[in-house]
Design a protein around this nucleic acid. Structure first.
Lengths: 336, 336
DNA sequence: CAGAATCTTTACAGCGCTGTACATTGTCGA
DNA sequence: TCGACAATGTACAGCGCTGTAAAGATTCTG
């Protein structure tokens, strides 16, 4: 059987299409008896509105896209979950777009891919420079997530990575650690994020009167957890001495944990380990992982709010929102 | 500036709309020079097709929905990632729908929510009975994931949970364990899955001539990781002796690990632990987690294939596909 | 070289819905 | 009792695209 259309309901109820439309959309000025008659016809025929047609007529899709590197990364999974929940409350649905940190895929997100499909995009770029983003996105409402260099025309939401790194390192210092490594420079990674985290790392050391040792900044070959593992291995092989390490994300921290324990270092006694993201991983490791904790819910909420304003027609220069963060203290770097 | 439409390009290139449409869609019989002329106009104006309009005209959306309980559960995250990849290769995009194991949300997935929005749905139900599903889904192409009771009209893909549980338990038996617990009956959980896993559990014990002890089947209060933790705690408090445990998923296994280690049990020496799903979690725990490993990629691939046939117009009774599984051996239940 | 066969291109209806403008009915005050 | 004004309901264009049928252009036969 063919799908039931608005006009079928209208015929059955002996009214105009528009009246049926009004009932479906809860328009206020419809007589109760008329509403009941139409509703009866709807129920009898099992009518469901065709959303595609509605979209074409209204020009809004009621969907937003969330474009991120990997959906099975815990941080992004949690962000997606929060955003989907917030969006749903506000009458929007979320399409999740995986870029796998591929430059082409990121470009596609802003171009053809979403055209006319979504009302707006929330995008965590990793490969594209802000300027290219600004050039491509035309008038599609867009909000960026994460640290971004010089975003003049585009809204974006982030945490204060300098302060967060400083807080993370300060926590380690408060435990009496002095030789604090930073694990997470990735070969060929061009993002601003690490730069700012390193800044905070240095500031915290400075504040405590500790002279930074460049050898303590560890570089990994890739983004995989095992790359962190390898980097720690190499550092230990090279005789590097350290009593704490701040990692770029929880996966790296889990890798570091493994490597350290394999080499007989006790965590946290010999080396305190601090992750970043405060993701579900922190609960699975042994010891559980202390972690720098971006306020993910707020991140998602603010990104949605900014996007919503743009979708309502707001124009103007890019706005920047900074969201809070905390330090989730667990066993790998306990309270002193 | 308003969006560029097909007709704008047509005017600029001095051709009919349809010719532009043919160029955009790569239709074969267009003269090269004509194609070039149209393409030039497209480029000059920066034309992008409006997907909503195309959908309304063609009747297909090019999207499928994946509805699952939680997207930030590692198993589902990985399934989503696989499916998105497979679908993309075949020219489809995936909308992810979170039901949070809520009966209303599950119902919504099959009803209004997706109407006219997607060409088909892949759905992992947890609350709805198959009969209700069959009743609701009308002619929307649908494929179910996971164990399902008596699905006569609906396609579905699953692993052989009986055999998988048997293999998991057999592995533990091969390590010399005799007192093997099963962790994962959840209060009020009505799914078929556990029933079948328990069957496999019993079969393996039978085969080895071990008399099953009902006390070894542990029940948790909920689906959270901490519920597993608590259940193990209670079992130990109650003086239950066991030397191995098979868990319903890796999160539960992680919880069990924590509880056991907190109570001074060594894993795997005193108690071997086996997870289920072979998710990323297995790498984060210490020791790393052995796990029953459904072939997730195959699960996603088969589900897509079945759905694809339905979307192509295939009718007929529900088909059932069983996908392979393995045992991923890691440190928590090593090879003997 | 006429007529058939094939290749290109065009015109236009229609996908299912909503927005707008207008027609109809009912209500109320003077 | 009548006009003014709101409250309801209707007719129809149009959102941007593609499918269909048919016209026009070109090439191929005998």
């Amino acid at each position: 059987m063919a799908r039931v259309r608005l006009i079928d309901v209208a015929e059955r109820a002996q009214v105009s299409m528009k009246t049926v439309s009004n009932v479906v959309n809860g328009y206020a000025h419809v007589q109760p008896q008329m509403r009941a008659r139409v509703q009866a016809a709807i129920d009898e025929l099992g009518y469901r509105p065709n959303l595609t047609a509605r979209r074409l007529a209204t020009g809004r899709t009621g969907m937003i896209a969330l474009a991120m590197p990997e959906i099975d990364h815990p941080y992004f999974g949690e962000m997606a979950s929060h955003l989907a929940e917030i969006a749903l409350q506000r009458g929007y649905r979320v399409i999740i777009e995986q870029t796998l940190s591929d430059a082409e895929a990121e470009k596609a997100v802003l171009q053809d891919r979403e055209a006319g499909l979504v009302d707006g995009v929330i995008f965590q770029p990793t490969r594209m420079a802000t300027l290219d983003i600004a050039r491509l996105h035309d008038d599609l409402p867009l909000v960026l997530l994460g640290e971004v260099d010089a975003p003049v025309t585009t809204d974006h939401v982030m945490i204060d990575n300098v302060a967060a790194a400083r807080d993370g390192v300060s926590h380690l210092i408060s435990l009496g650690r002095r030789r604090i490594a930073f694990l997470g420079l990735v070969d060929g990674d061009i993002t601003m994020t690490n730069h700012r985290r390193l800044l905070g790392y240095q500031e915290a050391l400075d504040d405590a009167g500790i002279r930074p040792d460049p050898g303590l900044v560890l570089t990994t070959a890739g983004f995989d957890r095992h790359d962190a593992d390898d980097a720690v291995d190499r550092a230990l092989d090279g005789g590097l001495a350290f009593d704490a390490v701040l990692c770029r994300d929880d996966r790296f921290a889990a890798g570091a944990l493994t490597a350290l324990q394999r080499r007989g270092r006790r965590v946290p006694e010999d080396v305190a380990v601090m992750g970043w993201d405060d993701s579900a991983i922190t609960a699975y490791t042994s010891p559980t992982l202390s972690s720098v904790a971006p306020d993910k819910r707020q991140l998602a909420a603010n990104a949605f709010d900014l996007l919503h304003e743009r979708m309502q027609g707001h124009h103007g220069p890019g706005r920047h929102m900074v969201v809070g963060h905390g330090i989730s203290v667990r066993a790998s770097a306990p309270a002193r």
